[in-house]
């Protein structure tokens, strides 16, 4: 369990850095979604299945959807800010 935990934590940090430094805004949202999925598996490894189901449905499903709706309503999907 230690090895899988370490690999997932490295994936978490890399996707966190990626979400903050990508130029295209859609790539940032995809990195945030990967962050949320890695967090779900870490919660499941720490013997917390309720929290894992909640983070999977809310983080990877709802937050990503809200961000994409907001971006398509404002600056559009092809911007590079």
């Amino acid at each position: 369990m230690e090895l899988i935990n370490l690999v997932l934590l490295i994936l978490l940090i890399i996707s966190g850095i990626g979400a903050m430094t990508f130029k295209n805004i859609i790539h940032s949202i995809l990195a945030l979604s990967a962050f949320s999925i890695a967090l779900t598996v870490i919660f499941a490894l720490h013997r917390a299945p309720d929290v894992a189901v909640a983070e999977a449905s809310v983080g990877a499903g709802l937050t990503t959807g809200l961000f994409i709706i907001a971006i398509s309503n404002t600056i559009g999907a092809k911007s590079d800010e």
Partner: peptide, 13 residues
């Protein structure tokens, strides 16, 4: 594992 909140968000998805 589950409950009200998790199932509600799944229904809204």
């Amino acid at each position: 594992p589950g409950g009200g909140f998790q199932g509600g968000v799944i229904l809204a998805s």
